[in-house]
Amino acid sequence: MSKKKTPIYGLLAEFTTTDALVEASQRAYAQGFRCMDAYTPFPVEGLAESIGFTKNRMPMIVLIGGLIGAATAYTMMWFSATIHYPLNVGGRPLHSAPSFVPITFELTVLFASFAAVLGMLGLNGLPMPHHPLFNVPRFMMASRNRFFLCIQAEDPQFDMVTTKLFLEGLGPKSVIEVPH
């Protein structure tokens, strides 16, 4: 991503329904805009796809987390029970696999859950207390009943005049400039 300095962060169009927002995003994508994002008070089916997001890496991260958890737990128990501190309890085998199952399962779940939460936060770039969008007072409606589409100034096709005209043509309630 180029680090060139843009005069503003982007243009923000406000919509009142989810259908209008999804349609606007699809048209913006068809128009060739790529650096954009949509903001909604609740998850909207198909919206992420309409702005060109297809590669969701979350499932793979969680799977890897779970596998690491399972391997950690089983290796730890096997190592301590057979190599590091072998202890004969009533002639039971040192490597008593069935007894190792519950803890292996628990740590699989634990590690996978941490992978899910930290992976989600990490990929989303959170925590990020400051964001240019928070400079727009109306943006707080994004957590109530308004739906926003933001085309960022760093998009190669972005132009202050034509992009603004394009967004206004999508039938929004308003189009707002987002300062840095």
Binding site: D37, Y39, T40, P41, V44, A48, F53, P127, M128, H130
Partner: peptide, 13 residues
């Protein structure tokens, strides 16, 4: 943590 309801964020969320 700076949650702003981005469509991509919602998807991963």
């Amino acid at each position: 943590m700076g949650w702003r309801g981005s469509a991509v964020h919602w998807h991963r969320y």
